[in-house]
Design a protein around this nucleic acid. Structure first.
Lengths: 204, 204
DNA sequence: AAATTATTTGACCGACCGGTCAAGCTCATC
DNA sequence: GATGAGCTTGACCGGTCGGTCAAATAATTT
């Protein structure tokens, strides 16, 4: 096939989905290989270890996810509306995932990060990095809203961290409670955190 | 020794600490037994499985933690002050844990819940239950603050869920980023979420 | 003190873990 | 069409996993 074998890509995709669905420790290399229809020897031709595969898989997932985030946080959209749309898309995305997999999966970066934070520093650092990239979108939107006076001035970076903490926590709760409805109305709380005067109006 | 052998209690304590420090999948029954200085056969005399031990260990941890929560949320303390003190104690507790274990450990219930939510329903349900118990303290404080007009009226249960989501998310971030400072100023954001007029004053 | 029960011991189990490897196959290049 | 690099194959490795068990021992009841 092509220069970059589809085998490698298949492993990245399958590994990410299986680990998101279950957990890092709960998914074995054998299972990943079986699902990807790849021999174990091939696996270790492309990746030096399970951890290395996982780091690559999460980076790859980010790359596939990025266009959607760029669209949601497009400069074409008023900054506060970016945030509400992001909240809504989070809910919708989790709802579809839950329908397809039979249970709520939560934030993939948060889940794997929390699981192996104290055990594998490369995976920990990758999770931290991906979360920071997501926070950057939120920070930029907040800073812009402050500049155009739709928000009172404040430390946009700190506010973005708080917003992201809230959303991460809600995703974790949704996973643990296996209830996607936990994520149904994230936006008003996000607005309260960043100090928007009238949460209800911000969506309009 | 006593009727309830200290062996059982030692296993509960050791298992909880090791799993909080690492993860469910990252700690083996053999390791727990070694650390508790107990033979594997004894382990399976007291507990039917690793999962059963863990459920009991988390319940036991709650029981040990409860007096401290009762104290923090004592009716003797004004309701909003309960929340700020709870935030501060969360920070202090994590800081000490981090000092002792060499890294930030985050919320034990959130960590194990997120890890095995989709793999073992008994552990998942226990994590959900313990989180719900914690939320109840927050809900009660919010409801009381609303009653005595230090907060505008609102759905105390929903607000408590939002507060708890935020704190859970911050604990998760602190674990992933291995930085306890993430948890340093939880209270102002909590105040913003529940609609306290002047976050800065609420501590006084 | 005999009988019964609770607890401890450590060897043992098959399954599975992450990872290795030598041998073959495929295919572009010369 | 020979060469050699890239890729695939599947058997194989030692170690560890959660869990079992029969026999020994300690504690309790009769």
């Amino acid at each position: 096939m092509g220069r970059t074998s589809h085998v490698r890509e298949k492993l990245l995709e399958v590994a990410f989905q299986m680990i998101w669905d279950h957990s890092y420790g709960g998914v074995s290399v054998d299972q990943i290989c079986a699902r990807a229809d790849v021999n174990k020897g091939s696996f270790y031709h492309y990746f030096g270890s399970k951890a290395e595969l996982v780091v690559a898989a999460y980076e790859e997932h980010w790359n596939q996810r990025r266009p959607e985030l760029d669209r949601l946080f497009s400069a074409q959209v008023p900054p506060l509306e970016r945030l509400t749309k992001w909240c809504e898309s989070t809910y919708e995305r989790q709802k579809e995932k839950a329908r397809k997999y039979g249970h709520v999966c939560g934030c993939p970066y948060g889940s794997i990060g929390g699981e192996i934070a104290t055990q594998d520093d490369r995976i920990r650092a990758k999770a931290e990095e991906l979360i920071a990239r997501g926070m950057k979108y939120v920070e930029t939107a907040i800073a812009e809203a402050q500049r155009d006076r739709s928000l009172p001035s404040g430390d946009a970076k700190r506010l973005a961290e708080q917003v992201y903490s809230y959303v991460l926590g809600a995703m974790l709760r949704a996973r643990i409670e296996n209830d996607v409805e936990v994520l149904r109305n994230l936006a008003p709380t996000v607005m309260a955190i960043i100090g928007a005067r009238n949460p209800a109006v911000a969506t309009a």
